[in-house]
Design a protein around this nucleic acid. Sequence first.
DNA 1: AAGTAGATGTTCT
DNA 2: GAACATCTACTTA
Length: 196
Amino acid sequence: MTKRQFPHGRRLGRHDFSGDPVEIARQLIGATLLVDGVGGRIVEVEAYDQSEPGSHCYPGPTPRNLAMFGPPGHAYVYINYGIHFCLNFVCGKKGHGCGVLIRALEPTHNLKRIRERRGMDNDRLLCAGPGRVGQALGITMDHYGLALYQSPFSVYAPANPTEIEVITGPRIGLKKAADLPWRFGLAGSRYLSRKF
DNA sequence: AAGTAGATGTTCT
DNA sequence: GAACATCTACTTA
């Protein structure tokens, strides 16, 4: 009998997000993210923390960033350039602002729906960038603050965490704290937003 | 392949 | 007003 290759490991719970955002960002590479059953494998993320000026939570709690000061394991959604809905996983401990921006997915679940939402057939570009991920998954402000371990979200650990090669680099699009190497990606993936 | 401009609206100075 | 954790379409090579 042949060994069954499962697409992913166990479902992540709230405790999986309570920790250092840089460490969690690294571990999220290769995980699977679904919203209402639509999504794919996480191939690129960035970490953000209250302690550095590149982060939205650097100034402390505001109406916009409040979710990042709430419990870990919830969604922080922001609108970028007036157009794009970008999704973050809130990490750390309640009261300390930090999170992980989901920058790119390898689409694996319900490609049909993703292509519809994105209005294109080029699989490589469906989820290659935070704005594209938001559109592909149908993210809106309705998702702000929702738990990642409950419907409509589901996040699954990688099936084979030891075989995943993670590459690191500076975060994209920042003028402040642009030197921190807090961008992480799946080595060799063709679904990255940009080369490392 | 690489560069530029325009879209579009909330937040910050 | 300016900046902004970006994307697309269009230009130039």
